[in-house]
Simulated scan of single mutants.
Amino acid sequence: MIYRLDEKQISFPHPSLADEDGLLAVGGDLSIDRLLLAYEYGIFPWYDEDTPILWYAPFERFVLYPEKIKISKSLQKTVRSGKFRITVDTAFAEVIQACATMDRKDQQGTWIVDDMQQAYINLHKAGYAHSIEVWQDNKLVGGLYGVQVGRVFCGESMFSRVSDASKVALVHLAQDFGLSMIDCQVPSQHLQRMGAELISQEKYLLDLAHQDIKPYGFQRTL
């Protein structure tokens, strides 16, 4: 059963009530309060221009534990080379725009529609959504963005315009911010090669329950 949300009431059904594809609810809005409540309970929006707002809570989550990240020798060399400059929260809107417009294999269009972009920009301005930017010759060549829930970073998307740029952003995310878990949401081969794994919804929600979502908590620990 797919639940229809009341736009006047900010609430969600329990994530365990999602269907086999992880679809939990439809409707509602992308207000800051609703998005924060969703992330606190392991729920995220994912839809396109041809559908209403859809909310997902998959029964398995694809996550990366920072202490388990696998960095190839070639990527280690790239990270140490200094060829990229890394910044944090300096170009959030540019990162989300780049993620929305990147051509991706076997994917037509984008789920990061205009309303989604504005919603996450609002979350960023409120201190809950963050970005890591990768620069080369003063040009933005890669990055990622997501929502921080305590020590859990819920990654939304990443992009790369030159080889390894998004991977470098992920390495910095895993190593520099004292995170306990990075939620990658959608399984991919390259993230699996870097150590990401599937865990049950129950384990994910248990880990999430120990987190305290608060603004402006995204700071380097080094």
Rank of each mutant, 00 (worst) to 15 (best):
Y3H: 15
Y3L: 03
L5G: 06
D6R: 09
S11H: 12
D21T: 14
L36D: 03
E40D: 11
T51A: 13
T51Y: 04
W55D: 05
Y56M: 11
A57G: 06
A57E: 04
E60A: 10
R61T: 05
I69F: 09
I71S: 08
I71L: 10
L75N: 03
K77A: 12
V79F: 12
I86A: 11
V88T: 13
T90S: 12
A91D: 10
F92A: 06
I96Y: 01
M102E: 11
M102D: 01
D103F: 03
K105R: 14
K105E: 14
D106V: 11
M116S: 08
M116D: 04
Q118E: 15
N122Y: 01
K125I: 06
Y128K: 05
S131N: 02
I132P: 00
Y145T: 02
F153C: 07
S157Q: 02
V162C: 05
S163Y: 00
A165D: 00
L173Q: 01
L173D: 00
D176G: 01
S188E: 03
R193E: 15
A196T: 03
A196I: 09
I199S: 07
S200R: 08
E202P: 00
K203Y: 12
Y204M: 14
I213E: 05
P215M: 11
G217M: 14
Q219M: 15
